[in-house]
């Protein structure tokens, strides 16, 4: 089975700082591979006995050699990427269009696996949009995959039921994170990563903004600290009330 895995480079959320005016400061945040994509790469590495190709579309962060090696150290054979500063902030539709072009470049394949969503936006749209662009069947929220020849037996865990689906390849699936625990890139994989093929693909796709960001602010901080320093009945009642409030009771 030859598998393609689209992945996204996002900013390390722990390093994003909130400024006094609640605006976000991204300047200290380093680029990293989106967490959920690590699960997709892992399951692909486990079942992709005929090659695992990672695809990525993005801005400057994709030019970082460490970022590329990181992707290639996780059971991936080759990397196809389109990077352009104009693609810094593509919407789901455009991302899917650019990925479709990379899919074409990557040649024949059996399966495309995507993560649950991207760690920054979590819009969960690229999987379906890509399926639409490629005119392929899509199954989302997959928690288990069994390969039987050219057929896939898939399990989806839904809120109150478990669904079993069979689908012919080629197909697209997106997975729930539980499907596979990402491997820890070993030293051998890390050293080998830099030697694996990386293909840069340019597209004619013009980045247009379909939506305009009006504001992007952190939620207002509520003052949660209270000092209650005596043991009178009122203070104890006040303390109990504060506890309840903190615990959302």
């Amino acid at each position: 089975m030859k598998i393609l895995v689209p992945v996204k480079i996002v900013l390390e959320s722990e390093d994003i700082q909130i400024k006094g005016d609640r605006s976000l400061d991204f300047s200290k945040a380093k680029p990293k591979l989106s967490d959920y994509d690590c699960n997709a790469l892992e399951i692909a590495a486990q079942i992709g006995d005929n090659g695992v190709y990672a695809l990525s579309v993005g801005g400057e962060a994709l030019k970082d050699s460490k970022v590329k090696k990181n992707i290639l150290s996780r059971g991936v054979d080759e990397l196809f990427l389109t990077c352009d500063s104009a693609y810094e902030d593509l919407d789901a539709y455009q991302t899917a269009q650019a990925l479709a072009k990379l899919v074409e470049e990557a040649g024949e394949y059996d399966l495309i696996i995507l993560g649950d969503g991207s760690a920054d936006r979590m819009a969960q749209q690229v999987d379906v949009q890509l399926a639409y662009a490629l005119n392929l069947p899509i199954v989302t929220a997959v928690s288990h995959i069994e390969v039987e020849g050219s057929k896939l037996k898939l399990t989806r865990i839904l809120e109150d039921s478990i669904q079993n689906i069979e689908v012919e390849t080629p197909a697209i699936i997106s997975i729930v994170p539980d499907i596979a625990e990402p491997r820890i890139a070993g030293m051998k994989d890390i050293l080998a990563a830099g030697k694996k093929p990386m293909h840069e693909v340019t597209t004619e796709l013009e980045a247009t903004q379909s939506a305009e960001t009006v504001s992007n602010l952190a939620p207002e901080q509520v003052q949660r600290q209270q000092n209650i320093k005596d043991a009178s009945d009122e203070s104890i009642a006040e303390f109990a009330q504060a506890l309840k409030q903190a615990a959302n009771l």
Binding site: K66, N70, S73, I184, A185, M187, I190, L191, A193
Partner: peptide, 18 residues
Amino acid sequence: TDEQELLIESIEEFCSRY
């Protein structure tokens, strides 16, 4: 090097897991 930085990330992941 990139490789040394990735090694450190792997060690961090390893230690937080085990």
